[in-house]
C-alpha cells in the first residue's frame, strides 16, 4: 500500500517538476508570479489588483496569480510577502493602510513598511469626499465646524477604529478644534446610510458612491480630503483651502519583499506603468475616481516614509492606538 503511494507521489513529482523548471537563471519572469492582495476578494483593492495583474501578465508573458490573504487590516497578507524570497515571483498590492497607517495602529506589526519592503510602482490614488445628509443643517464646511463648537458637538461615521476615514475625521477635529465624536461602522456603505438618514452628522467616503447620492439630492458634499481636489467631483473645494495641512488620500502601490534585484524591480515597474496606461485600466480608473500614480520609482521610499510620518502624527493626536 505505502509502496504504491510512494510510486504515485514520485510520478506526480516528476510531472510537476517539468512545470517548475530548473533553478538556473534565465530571463525573468520564467514562471508565474504571485500577487498577494492583503484584503478579501471583491474589495476595491482586490478589483484594482486583479485588473492590473491581468494586463501586466499580458505584457510579461507569464500569468500573475492573485492570492487573497485578508486579515488584520491587511497585515496578514503583507507580512507574508515580506517573508517571501525577493526574487520577483512574490509581489503584493500595498495600500495606505498596509504601508502607512498600520504602523501606528498595531503596536506589534510583524513588518516595517519602511525597511522590509521594495517599492515597485505607484498605482494610483483617490481622495475622499466629506458628505452630510441632504436634510443636514450644515450647508458649508464652515457651518459644520461652527456646529461642532456648539453644544454637544457633532458626530462622524467611519469604517472602523484606526481606518483612514476615522483618522481623517480626527485630523479635522485637531485642525479646527471642534468637538467631533467618532461613530465606527462595519462598512462604508452602512455608515453612508446613517449619514443619509441623519443619524450621524458627516462622513469621509469614497467619492464615487457618495457622488451618485449627491447628484440625487440625498447627500451634500462639503469638501475633498486631498489638496488637489477630486477628478470625480471637481466642483467640491479641497478642505485644505480652508484648513491648511489637510491633505489625505488613499493610495495603492505595488511592492515586493526587501532587497529585490534592481533589474527585476525595473522590469516589474515598467510593466505596472504600461498596465496603468492601458485602455481598460484607464477606463476603470475614470469610473471609480482613481487618479493614476505620479510618484517616480526612486521617490517611492521617501513617499512611504512621509506617509508613515503623516498618519502616525494624526494617530498620535487622536490616540487611536489599537494595540
Amino acid at each position: 500500500m505505502k509502496h504504491v503511494f510512494k510510486k504515485v507521489l514520485a510520478v506526480a513529482a516528476i510531472a510537476s517538476a517539468s512545470f517548475v523548471g530548473n533553478a538556473a537563471v534565465a530571463e525573468y519572469p520564467e514562471r508565474p508570479i504571485t500577487m498577494i492582495v492583503p484584503f478579501s476578494a471583491g474589495t476595491s483593492t482586490d478589483t484594482v489588483s486583479r485588473l492590473i495583474a491581468k494586463v501586466m501578465s499580458d505584457n510579461l508573458g507569464q500569468p500573475i496569480v492573485v492570492e487573497n490573504r485578508a486579515g488584520a487590516g491587511g497585515s496578514v497578507g503583507t507580512s507574508e510577502v515580506v517573508k517571501a524570497d525577493p526574487d520577483g515571483y512574490t509581489i503584493a498590492m500595498g495600500t495606505v493602510g498596509t504601508l502607512a497607517i498600520n504602523k501606528s495602529i498595531f503596536t506589534d506589526l510583524p513588518y516595517d513598511p519602511e525597511a522590509d519592503v521594495t517599492p515597485i510602482s505607484f498605482v494610483g490614488y483617490t481622495p475622499t469626499l466629506l458628505v452630510v445628509g441632504a436634510d443636514s443643517k450644515f450647508q458649508t464646511l464652515e457651518d459644520l465646524v461652527a456646529g461642532s463648537k456648539a453644544g454637544d458637538g457633532i458626530t462622524f461615521a467611519s469604517t472602523g477604529n484606526g481606518t483612514s476615514t476615522h483618522l481623517a475625521g480626527e485630523l479635522l477635529k485637531v485642525l479646527t478644534g471642534g468637538q467631533m465624536i467618532h461613530v465606527p461602522y462595519k462598512s462604508g456603505a452602512v455608515g453612508l446610510a446613517a449619514v443619509m438618514s441623519g443619524e450621524v452628522d458627516f462622513m469621509f467616503n469614497h467619492p464615487v458612491s457618495a457622488k451618485k447620492n449627491v447628484e440625487a439630492g440625498k447627500l451634500r458634499a462639503l469638501g475633498v480630503s486631498g489638496a488637489k481636489g477630486s477628478v470625480v467631483a471637481p466642483e467640491v473645494p479641497p478642505i485644505n483651502d480652508s484648513y491648511d495641512g489637510f491633505d489625505l488620500i488613499a493610495w495603492w502601490l505595488i511592492h515586493g519583499p526587501a532587497n529585490m534585484p534592481d533589474d527585476v524591480t525595473n522590469k516589474l515597474s515598467a510593466a505596472v506603468t504600461a498596465a496603468i496606461n492601458a485602455g481598460e485600466v484607464r477606463e476603470y480608473f475614470a469610473t471609480s475616481g482613481i487618479t493614476e500614480g505620479d510618484v517616480p520609482l526612486d521617490g517611492l521610499k521617501g513617499f512611504i516614509s512621509a506617509e508613515v510620518q503623516k498618519w502616525g502624527g494624526i494617530a498620535e493626536s487622536a490616540k487611536a492606538k489599537a494595540d
Binding site: A10, A13, I14, S16, V20, V66
Partner: peptide, 19 residues
C-alpha cells in the same frame, strides 16, 4: 483558484535529491 500547489516544489526537490 485557491492558492494550492498540487505538490510543493520543495517536496519534489527533497524527493529527487536535487537542490
Amino acid at each position: 483558484q485557491l492558492p494550492f500547489k498540487p505538490i510543493s516544489p520543495d517536496l519534489i526537490s527533497w524527493f529527487t535529491g536535487t537542490n
